[in-house]
Every structure is written in C-alpha cells, then in structure tokens.
Design a protein around this nucleic acid. Structure first.
Lengths: 199, 199
DNA sequence: TTCTAACATGTTCATATCGACATGATGTTC
DNA sequence: GAACATCATGTCGATATGAACATGTTAGAA
C-alpha cells in the first residue's frame, strides 16, 4: 500500500513521467521503496482515476508520447494524511538470518560464505547510498533541489534534515550489518580453533 | 518463497502440526519470518505433495484430529540446498523512512510523534527478543533443545552459535534504531531552538 | 453445568509483487 | 546506413500474502 504514496511523494517534488519515476525508484527513492515499471504504470492510472494526480501528454521528437503527471491538491492532502499516520510496521521478513539459523545443517565453509556474502552486500549498499546522501547535502541532487524550490530557509533546512536522518539511518544499518558479519566470522574462526582435530 | 523453507527448517527440529507451526511463527521463528495459519496449512499440503514432509494423523481426546508432519530425507536435502544457497536480498521496503522523507509536508510535532513511535516500536521489539535469546542460551528453549538432541557437543555448539548470531543481530538492529531515533529527536530540538521565533 | 480459553484445521477473496512478454521511437556512434 | 543504448509505455500470468470467513473440540475453572 505504500507504492501509491511513494509515487505521490515523488510527484510532490516535481511532475514526472512513469519512466522518470521508474528511474527514481531505481535510484534514491529505491533505498526506501522499490518498484518496477510494471507496477508503476498501472498505479499511475489508478491515482489519476482517484484524482490524486493529473496527467498531461507531451511529445518527444516526432511521435514518441510522454505522459507527465502532476500531484493535485487532493493528492497533497492524501500524502499529508499518510505521512502524519502512525507508522505501520510490517511483518518480519529476514530470509538471510532465517537461512543462518538452519545452517547448522551445512558446513562451516558454507556458513563462512554466507557471512562473507552478507558483508559484501552491505558494503556495496553503503558505498552506493553514501554518494546519494552526500549529493543531497551538497545541493547536487536534482530532484531534492526541485523540492527545495519556493521553500523558506527554515523549510529547506527541515527537508534536508529529514533526508539526512533517512539516508544516514540506512548507512548506519549497513555498517551494523558489516560489523556483525565480521564478528560472526571471527567467532567461526574461534569455533574452528576450539574444535580443531576433535570429532 | 522462504515460507516453505521456514516450515522445513522448523520441522527439521521436531515433527509438528500446523497449529504448532503457527505458534512457532508467532514466537521465536517469527522474528525472522512470520506467517499466519492461512498460509501455513496450504503450504503444508504442497510440501506433502512434493514428498518433502510426511503427515500422520493423531486424535486428541475423542474426536479432535491432529495432523503431525515430519520432514523426509528429501526434505532435509532440499533444506540443505536452500541454506547453502547464496543469500537472496529482497527489494528494499522501508515504509517508515519513506514516510519520514516526505514528512517535510507535516508539522514538527508530527515528525516528533513518528520518531517516538519508531523508538517505542524497537524498544518493544528488543525487550521481546532478548528473553528468547537468553532462553536459548540457557537451554530453556524447548524446540531448540529438541534440535540439539542426538547432536555431538561440537554440533550443539554450532547450533547455539548460529542462534546467538541471528537473535543477537536482531537485538543490535533494534538498539541501532532506538539510538537513531533518539539522535533524530535531539536534532529536532536543536532545529526548533535555531528557528525559534523566526518565520 | 456452563462458560471460556486454547486447541485444531481449513477456505476464500482481494491485493501486492515480479518476471516475462510486447512494442515502438530517438539519438549516438561506427 | 546499421547497430545499439536509452527512452517510453504498456499487459499478462504466476505466486505471495493477509484479512476475513468458517467450523468444531477439549480442558479447566467458576
């Protein structure tokens, strides 16, 4: 149910086409909600039917049609209602650690590979998010800059503060997972030393 | 797709009924994968059709039928294949921080409430997971004890080590989120001081 | 004996999600 | 002029998930 609000939120920065949004979901926004174009286009239709967004046609070159959507006042209202809502925490889904708790059926090497993959995953993630956070802080992020347009310095500071919290939290999470995996790997080493030769 | 393996994994500790599994998903296992009985019963049927588990009937009292499932050798094999697989990281879904980045449309008080709810959520979570982790470490967790049965001391140590990693990681994550929310709340205070009276 | 909590197992429907299928235009490079 | 990456918009079908609907038993307490 968050997809519609992810779209509304993105459109509250600036009007965009389905294609623009798809790319957004593949970049910055994607760290908090990801979606493919096959979800986005039908959702845009539904949002238009609900009068929360407004579509207009443009043409690129000779024939290529582009549909650019803008958020309506009703859309802004719906978005504000949603952000103001008590956050809904979804059911836990942690397939990696689920694998891990049943990995006593696998070999120590398999477990080691699992933890190394976990570490790599979060290193990659951290290294991809950091530049985005930095670009936002340095005023080099296009869509965030558009969001700042027309806002007072006070409001601009809040927009930037919230982004800093959100991306910062994501980076901290990645760093936690990296440190966790490293500690687990060291514990595995110790386990192997303790039981070396026995059994 | 992890549901079938969550069930297989749970059955690899000891045979259980759908009802037992439902409770398991509501307790320990639920921290890594949660599911309702309406997902579990049909999945058990599918697993039985695939010969990965074996169902037998028991009667409780006079009439009440109970279907107890055990994992088959083919099921153990399928489970091992899965735990040995490279972990699959799912698309990001972080509705809370998604709300947060668009909360520049809301009031500072709304943001404060959001962060306080976030903190409470993870305090509750931490306080619920810790006793489970401790019970496992102290040998007071029934299903984990059953899993240890018939294992060598070396194997038992690995089972317990993996649980410690998994639950420990979850607790650390909760503590990170609590600290993050507290820092964000302090940053909000500072924001309000800085802009007091202006605007 | 009656009531209640817990035991026990299902189905059904709406929605979410993802990968694959499907099509075509535009701009750049070789 | 051909090839290719990117722009651009859609649909379809399989599966996942969750809430609600549906039914009945058993054990213990009041």
């Amino acid at each position: 149910m968050s997809l519609r609000f992810a779209i509304l939120g993105s459109l509250s920065s600036c009007p965009s086409s389905g294609y623009d949004l798809t790319r957004q979901f593949g970049l910055g926004l994607g760290w908090f909600w990801s979606a493919s174009h096959s979800q986005i286009y039908p959702e845009l239709k539904r949002l238009e039917d609900s009068k929360l967004i407004d579509g207009s046609f443009t043409t690129v070159g000779e024939k290529l049609e582009k549909r650019v959507y803008s958020i309506t006042p009703a859309g802004v209202e719906a978005l504000i209602t949603w952000v103001t809502d008590h956050p809904q925490y979804r059911p836990n889904r942690d397939p990696e650690r689920l694998q891990l708790i049943f990995s006593d059926l696998a070999s120590v090497d398999d477990i080691r590979r699992h933890l190394e993959a976990h570490q790599r995953h979060y290193v990659d993630r951290r290294d991809l998010v950091r530049p985005i956070r930095d670009a936002i802080a340095n005023g080099e992020h296009d869509r965030v800059q558009k969001r700042l347009n027309g806002k007072s310095p006070r409001e601009q500071a809040m927009t930037l503060l919230l982004r800093e919290f959100a991306y910062g939290g994501d980076i901290e999470r990645a760093e936690l997972e990296i440190a966790w995996a490293q500690r687990a790997l060291r514990a595995l080493d110790e386990y192997e030393r303790r039981y070396a030769g026995n059994d």
